[in-house]
């Protein structure tokens, strides 16, 4: 009898504990991200190290983005062709491809790929630096480890992801063209004309810029897990895994909000 009386209380305590942990984590990550933005404007500015990080994030991810974009472009065209042919609308394939890639597929897939490649790398690298006392060593040299390690990586992800998205969009369009050219001998000029016939600048700029937010989220979350771990090799493993899982999830959730925001700012695109 006593056991059944205490069960709801235990459930409440369990729910309270889960919620406290969740909101505690959310608060810590938010403060971490705010501190990263604040420290961008605080000297000294780590230009040299920032350039290294931008190279690492940007150039290091370029081949992945180009290959994935090309393959996705081919696959998408193959799928849309089989459907649109039934309605005699295969001429719309380039426009459909451009709309899908520039609006959603390019930005979202680029964000997810970056969270996989760079997010895991940042989480593991910083966690390893923490485990091997390299972050402590930076502090003993009077160098601000947060500015040096975290801020540079967050900036690099924020700046480079929109650029990588442009490359992914271009590779996707090229993949679509290659597929169409092989299937129907469509010329490059006609493909491009059809692709961009219904595309305005407003279709391209906001979705590409939203990836800067994705990049900021990926950089912040990955750095948070790596910088704050303190559990040796186990910490490296969990920081790497958590960086990918949480940043991928947050990118997808943020995409929902940002698409709604874009539709709010550009209502003509919501039709």
């Amino acid at each position: 009898m006593a056991g059944s009386d205490t069960a709801p209380i235990q459930r409440q305590a369990c729910v309270r504990s889960v919620l406290t942990n969740f909101f505690g984590f959310l608060g810590q990550v938010t403060l971490f991200g705010i501190a990263a933005i604040r420290d961008v404007f605080r000297p000294p500015f780590e230009f040299e190290y920032l350039m290294n990080q931008m190279y690492e994030v940007g150039v290091g991810s370029l081949s992945l983005m180009l290959t994935s974009g090309f393959a996705l472009g081919v696959v998408m065209t193959l799928h849309t062709r089989s459907t649109l042919v039934q309605f005699g609308a295969e001429a719309q394939i380039p426009a459909f491809q451009a709309m899908a890639f520039f609006n959603e597929i390019g930005p979202l897939v680029a964000g997810l790929l970056l969270s996989g490649r760079v997010g895991a790398g940042i989480g593991a690298e910083l966690a390893n630096m923490r485990a091997t006392e390299q972050i402590d060593a930076i502090e003993t040299l009077s160098v601000d480890s947060f500015k040096f390690l975290v801020v540079t990586r967050v900036i690099a992800c924020t700046v480079m992801l929109p650029l990588l998205t442009i490359f992914m969009d271009a590779a996707g369009m090229f993949g679509g063209f290659a597929s169409e050219h092989i299937t129907s001998n469509l010329s490059w000029q006609l493909y491009i004309t059809r692709a961009f016939s219904n595309l305005a600048v407003a279709n391209f700029i906001p979705p590409t810029l939203k990836t800067a937010v994705f990049g900021y989220l990926i950089g912040t979350i990955s750095c948070f897990f790596g910088y704050n771990t303190n559990r040796g090799s186990d910490g490296v493993r969990s920081a790497s895994t958590n960086s990918v899982v949480v940043s991928s999830l947050v990118v997808i959730l943020a995409d929902v909000l940002l698409v709604k925001l874009i539709f709010f700012v550009f209502p003509d695109r919501a039709i």
């Binding site: 630096m129 390299q134 003993t140 040299l141 009077s142």
Partner: peptide, 16 residues
């Protein structure tokens, strides 16, 4: 810390 130097047990060199 500018007036201090620290040698860690593991040396803690920046491996990159």
């Amino acid at each position: 810390r500018r007036k201090m130097g620290f040698l860690f047990q593991s040396a803690a060199l920046f491996d990159s």
